[in-house]
Simulated assay, not measured.
Amino acid sequence: MNALTSTSPQAQLPLIDAMKMVGTQLIVLHHLAFYGPLSDYAHSLAPGLFSWLSAHARLAVQIFLVISGFLAAQSVAPGGALTQRPLGPLLWDRYLRLVPPCMVAIVLAIGCSALARALMSH
């Protein structure tokens, strides 16, 4: 049984993980190339690269849309067989798994933004 057909929740999907890694880096680079004070200065250092990043790297979001659909389908139909688990508990489990880390990330981002605002003048 290969990694793509394993029903184990611990099964690793190296190709999926690699695509998510590349996608996250492209999105971070797109934000650095397109938004904020860094983009003004960095564009003059490598205009071709930063033009490409600002115009095309945002398309990496599509990677996440496709992968999330694949992983959601895999969670409700492991091994290709639809589970008969009720939707409510499934959604609640997903909420409990995803929302706390998201809230921590949002609080950290707000804190970092406040710190950066205090330390920078643009």
Rank of each mutant, 00 (worst) to 15 (best):
M1C: 09
A3L: 00
A3H: 07
A3V: 02
A3Y: 05
A3G: 00
L4N: 09
L4C: 00
S6Y: 01
T7W: 00
S8Q: 04
P9V: 04
Q12K: 12
Q12L: 10
P14N: 10
P14I: 04
L15S: 08
I16C: 06
D17A: 07
A18K: 13
M19G: 01
M19C: 12
M19E: 08
M21Q: 04
M21D: 00
M21A: 15
V22P: 14
G23I: 01
Q25F: 12
L26A: 04
V28I: 15
L29G: 09
H30S: 15
H30T: 09
A33C: 06
A33L: 03
Y35H: 11
Y35N: 11
Y35M: 15
G36I: 09
L38I: 07
D40N: 05
S44A: 13
S44K: 06
S44R: 10
S44I: 10
L45P: 05
L45I: 10
L45V: 14
L45G: 10
A46S: 13
A46P: 03
G48N: 11
G48R: 08
L49N: 06
L49W: 03
L49G: 03
F50K: 01
S51E: 06
S51W: 12
S51T: 14
W52C: 12
W52S: 14
W52F: 14
L53F: 05
S54N: 11
A55Y: 03
H56S: 14
A57G: 07
R58I: 12
A60F: 04
A60M: 06
V61W: 06
F64C: 09
F64W: 03
V66Y: 03
I67T: 00
S68D: 10
G69N: 07
F70N: 00
F70A: 08
L71H: 03
A72E: 09
A72G: 08
A73E: 05
Q74Y: 02
S75I: 04
V76A: 04
V76C: 05
A77L: 04
A77C: 10
P78E: 02
P78C: 05
P78M: 03
P78W: 00
G79V: 00
A81S: 14
A81W: 09
L82S: 01
Q84E: 15
R85G: 02
P86S: 12
L87E: 11
P89W: 00
L90M: 11
L90E: 09
D93G: 10
D93F: 06
R94S: 13
R94V: 12
R94W: 12
Y95S: 05
Y95E: 02
Y95G: 05
Y95T: 13
L98R: 15
V99M: 13
P100K: 07
V104T: 13
A105W: 10
V107R: 09
L108W: 08
A109E: 07
I110R: 02
I110G: 07
G111P: 03
G111E: 04
G111Y: 00
C112V: 08
C112A: 11
A114L: 13
A116S: 15
A116I: 08
R117H: 14
L119S: 14
M120N: 11
S121W: 14
S121R: 13
H122C: 11
H122N: 10
H122R: 15
H122K: 15
